[in-house]
């Protein structure tokens, strides 16, 4: 298990809390940055859930956009049925993504290495094509929500409250994943990453451990999907595309694999790169791509590892 101090994560949450803090203090904040950070927060939840299996479990899933899309489309489908209450939407999204992860994980975990990457990708592509074919929900064009999800009747996911709600969810997810990663389960999962044969010889079942981790990660990611649909008031198949899965992996690796809070930094850089560089120049991948390679080569431990002595 990687040692991680509490200072950096708390600073990160402090910075994210500046937006509502300043607003509460009467500073009129609007425009680019709050909206960008809102997206960062939602992506950070998804990436952090991926970090449980990728960083701690060492399972290179190239299909983590699938539970994101499942969460988002649960919002759309229930929206069409006039169900907009989070107390229903969120459990439905989590159960759907959890069942998906249970079934596909049970197959994917029979393979290792590159095959695992390809199989998780293939399952996510199945979700992508499945939602693309949902003609009632806009097919490839996507679907615009009638209204945002309400939380116990409150407008907590409305445009004015969304930021704070998403931040609270991110904080809760961080606490939860941190607790899990430090628990007996997290230790066994980290052991599977290092040496499955040894774990099995000690009387623990790596397959069951990794499968449960995949289900937990998918259920959390589905919550990010619910938030993402609400933030955009729109869902589209791109939520489940392989590029999205790749983005999530980049966020985890760039931010600092296995650190959990690194996902926030990774999400910030990736979202900023896509939105910010995209505005500056249409050739932004020319900057983004080499930047990524340099980061992987020179930032061992990712952005969260800068200034942290390791070993």
């Amino acid at each position: 298990m990687r040692r991680s101090g509490l200072l950096l994560p708390l600073v990160l949450f402090g910075v994210l809390a500046l937006v509502p803090g300043l607003r509460a203090a009467g500073v009129p904040l609007g425009g680019f940055w709050p909206l960008l950070l809102e997206r960062v927060i939602v992506f950070a939840i998804a990436a952090m859930s991926l970090d449980l299996i990728l960083g701690i479990g060492g399972l290179v899933s190239f299909g983590h956009a699938a539970p994101l899309a499942i969460g988002a489309y649960t919002v759309a489908i229930l929206n069409e049925a006039n169900v907009t209450e989070a107390a229903l939407v969120v459990p439905c999204a989590m159960v759907a993504a959890g069942v998906f992860a249970l079934l596909t994980g049970a197959v994917a975990l029979r393979t290792r290495g590159i095959n695992f990457i390809m199989i998780t990708l293939a399952f996510a592509q199945m979700v992508f094509f499945a939602v693309s074919s949902l003609a009632d929900y806009g097919g490839e064009d996507g679907y615009t929500l009638f209204s945002r999800t309400r939380v116990l009747g409150h407008d907590w996911l409305g445009a004015n409250n969304f930021y704070v709600s998403a931040l609270v969810v991110l904080f809760g997810v961080w606490l939860l994943l941190r607790m899990i990663s430090l628990s007996r389960f997290g230790r066994a999962l980290a052991a599977c990453r290092q040496n499955r044969v040894r774990v099995r010889a000690l009387g623990l079942d790596p397959f069951a451990i990794e499968l449960v981790a995949m289900v937990i990660a998918a259920m959390i990611c589905a919550v990010a999907g619910v938030l993402m649909a609400n933030e955009a008031e729109f869902v589209s198949p791109a939520y489940g595309g392989w590029q999205r899965s790749g983005d999530l992996m980049v966020m985890v690796i760039l931010g600092g694999i296995g650190s959990l809070h690194g996902a926030i930094l990774g999400a910030f850089v990736v979202v900023l790169a896509e939105e910010g560089l995209g505005r500056l120049t249409q050739h932004w991948p020319l900057i983004y791509g080499p930047g990524l390679i340099l980061a992987v080569l020179y930032l061992r431990g990712g952005l969260a590892g800068i200034g942290v002595r390791r070993g």
């Binding site: 607790m179 899990i180 628990s183 389960f185 997290g186 230790r187 052991a191």
Partner: peptide
């Protein structure tokens, strides 16, 4: 300690830090 966990407990406990048992 993980060997003790394998023989005396299970993997499926999600709360409490394992290191401080």
């Amino acid at each position: 300690a993980l060997a003790v966990q394998g023989s005396h407990g299970s993997a499926f406990r999600f709360v409490w830090p394992a290191r401080s048992e």
